[in-house]
């Protein structure tokens, strides 16, 4: 008898010491099911995967707890549980699970796998999970996988599927989700961005308004003649200019700059001499310009600089000579 009391006391003590595990309860849905699944491979990067799931977790009286707490969608490889995500909403809706290429590698999934997609109650709220009661499983067949060979082509197929799902949902909900041009309207945009975060970045064409960037490509040109001319500087002249550059600036590879500055000094000396002889600035400059070509020919002046100088002279000439006479 004494022993029995001791055991009883021990039980009571253990019960008091043990931490209490909260058990929540939510009624089973009226019905549960997965309507469709599509898996897209290669949307943001090659090898990533996006599982798009259309489901029904139907309640005539919705639980006061949000679906984010009570239900989740997950991927199973046989009996091995993969990634999961809480459901956003009850009733008829869509949701997605995204895996980067690295995550796909970690889970070991390959294109066409017979994976299982499951919508199920959160075990915290549903201690017993029963198929078709508070859980539904959808086994992927090869035809549910989409990879069109390039990111752009696969994205196009996702865009088509989003429009198809929007058509299904707008009939089911009784709320328009598409515009007349089959673009997502405000409600459609909210619903699809909730379900597929980042959809606007890969399928902007399904939205009514989206940002875009002007298509601009830097023009590529090969200045072969200029390079050819710059290569004409002889070894002796290069040596002289490099030595002079090293002596003046204290730095290596300054031969080009020294050559350019030297040529500019000679140009202004020549222009000055012509100005003294003629008394005209435009004539002095125009006559001196060909001197720059000498610099091009011997390879100490870039052809680009000569053309820029010539352009400036032409503009100055137009301003001073032509406009001056128009007044």
């Amino acid at each position: 008898m004494k022993r029995l009391r001791l055991v009883l006391l021990l039980f009571i003590l253990i019960a008091l010491v043990l931490p209490t595990i909260p058990v929540y309860a939510v009624a089973d849905p009226d019905s549960i099911g997965i309507e469709s699944v599509r898996v897209y491979e290669g949307l943001w990067e090659a090898g990533d995967m996006l599982f798009v799931v259309e489901y029904k977790v139907m309640y005539s009286s919705e639980p006061s707890e949000s679906a984010e707490n009570t239900f989740l969608v997950g991927v199973w490889d046989g009996a091995v549980k993969g990634p999961d995500r809480p459901l956003n909403f009850y009733q008829h809706n869509i949701i997605s699970i995204y895996l980067t290429a690295a995550e796909v590698g970690i889970f070991g999934y390959t294109y066409g796998d017979e994976l299982k997609v499951r919508v199920m109650g959160n075990p915290t709220y549903f201690p017993v999970l029963t198929e078709d009661v508070n859980m539904d499983t959808f086994t992927l067949a090869a035809s549910f996988w989409v990879n069109e060979g390039s990111l752009a082509a696969t994205r196009t197929f996702l865009a088509y599927w989003c429009v198809a799902l929007a058509e299904v949902l707008e009939i089911s909900w009784g709320i328009p989700l598409l515009t007349t041009g089959d673009r997502l309207n405000t409600a459609g945009m909210i619903a699809f961005q909730d379900a597929i975060p980042g959809l606007d970045s890969i399928c902007p064409e399904v939205f009514q308004v989206y940002t875009s960037y002007p298509d601009y490509t830097d023009p590529a040109y090969t200045p072969t003649y200029e390079t050819d001319l710059l290569g004409r500087t002889g070894a002796r002249l290069t040596g002289v200019l490099e030595g002079l550059g090293q002596w003046i600036t204290g730095k290596a590879n300054m031969g080009g700059l020294i050559g350019g500055v030297g040529l500019a000094i000679l140009f202004f000396v020549l222009a000055g001499r012509i100005f003294i002889a003629t008394g005209s600035v435009p004539i002095a400059i125009v006559v001196s310009i060909p001197f720059l070509f000498v610099g091009n020919v011997i390879g100490i002046l870039s052809l680009t600089i000569t053309f820029i100088a010539a352009f400036i002279v032409v503009v100055l000439f137009a301003v001073t000579f032509i406009l001056g006479r128009m007044g």
Partner: peptide, 21 residues
Amino acid sequence: KVDYPNIDSRQLKKFMQTPSF
């Protein structure tokens, strides 16, 4: 009778909070 029975009321509320909707 329940109107709009196939959409979660929370989602509907979210739509309703958008002025354009």
